[in-house]
Design a protein around this nucleic acid. Sequence first.
RNA 1: GGCGGCGUAGCUCAGUAGGUUAGAGCAGUGGAAUCAUAAUCCACGUGUCCGGGGUUCGAAUCCCUGCGCCGCUACCA
Length: 505
Amino acid sequence: MKKFYITTPLYYVNDQPHIGHAYTTILADVLARYHRSLGEDVYFLTGTDEHGQKIQHAAEKRGVDPQQHADEYVLHFTSMWEKLHIKYDGFIRTTEKRHTDRVKDVLNDFYERGEFYMAEYEGLYSVSEERFVTEKEVEEGGFREVIQLKEKNYFFKMSKYQDALIRHIKENPDFIIPSSRQNEILGFLKKPLGDLCISRPKSRLKWGIELPFDKEYVTYVWFDALLNYITAIEWKTDEACFNKWWPVDLQLMGKDIITTHAVYWTTMLMALGLPLPKSILAHGWWLSGGSKMSKSLGNVVRPLDLIDEYGVDPVRYFLMRDMVLGLDSTFTMDAFIRRYNSDLANDFGNLINRVTILIKKNFDGKIPEPGEFNLTDKELIDEAGRIPAEIHLLIDALKLSDAIETTTSLFRKLNVYLEKKAPWKAVKEDRSPKSSAATTMYVSANVLLIGARLLSPVMPSRIKDILSLLGSTSDNQAGYDFGLLTPGTIVGESRSPFPRIILDD
RNA sequence: GGCGGCGUAGCUCAGUAGGUUAGAGCAGUGGAAUCAUAAUCCACGUGUCCGGGGUUCGAAUCCCUGCGCCGCUACCA
């Protein structure tokens, strides 16, 4: 059986989840569901990153200890995922023993094999921010109490993997997606790669995994967190499990942390002697009014607010449909409502009503027995037969937006088909089994079923209702073949799954 | 500063081996229909493919250049 291992980054628990977290996680969920629907064995991993300066800081601010802070904040994420209908297979927290023990193994291993060395680093340090800053950052301002600081730390010999990394990226065009990011990383790697500082002295940061070979230091949070992708699947503790899932098929992240993954994570894996991820994907940001959403700008769109108002599935649909892979996208209520009304209310929802009501009124609510298919029937049936394969190609190419648009086009074709065959007229002539009207409704319901099932990964909850409305009972029955709804299948009462949004202004 | 990318209909975007009248969805206008959520269907775009130059029989697609926008530029997540 084909496997599919997909990950989101581990989210930092210093703040509440926002639309960026939600987007990445929904994207992972949708892809995971698509792959499950193809019968693949899927492992979808997400979790939280709980060490480091910012957590310590956030905890201090609230007057609690860091672990308690993390324990509370992780719930914001898990409850958000529940509300967004995220069906993950694994959830890992970097403060769990199964993770910290393995991180220590790696640290020891690297230490013993000479992947680390100690060196003194001297640079500009902001006492107020408690971190080193670059000259550029200082020039841009915003940092107070900047001093020159010398500090001894451990470094990972990342630089020695530079050539291997460049070669791997060039030889594997799917390694970094989209290609614009790949160019960026390659451009970045034209300059000599430095080594990575992987420790922090306890004198200025206590909240982290202690270096097993030097109790004066904790581990740099990224070095710790990135390892979750292998610790969560039982690296070193369950070989069969690890070998089943590794290497990971797809790692999702926002464009802001692509370098961390493409360079740090990748070279860490090289040092570990493990195969590299098949693909890492950097997606864009959701903007609001042309700017990145930020609390200081006061333009944050809270996913939960939208969900409360319009439901989870329309929000998932919008986020998947309106962002083009790799590009930033602007979120506006206007765009959301336009998309909802045109695609979900007008095309899809109205079609569900059309079909079910016609069957209800004219065929006692049962899928009628079809007669011989004429050219018009055949054209639509052929189309419905072609589209699933087309969509699977688009999904493989990670073109979610196009895949959804393709499904919508099937609904539009079904609407055209109905206009052509006008069953509401034909039924006046003949409504007996195998009549033109009977055939039309049989074909319509079955094509609608295919289209609905193609959207199931995007809108699992509403589609489940729609499928049962159409008389499709089991959750994941065989493929996307035409004709699963056999004559006699009872069609339910439509409750307009996507009521049109009308704004009063 | 260095490296890289982008600029296609009102809006969001396709258009990667240069080739007949440049496409889709949405929005807009007119019409048809009335089974359906005032939903649906049909028809309608004189778009300088950012400007300029060049290569070519022929360029949105290649090269140069000007303007505008953006990304990356290690120890910030």
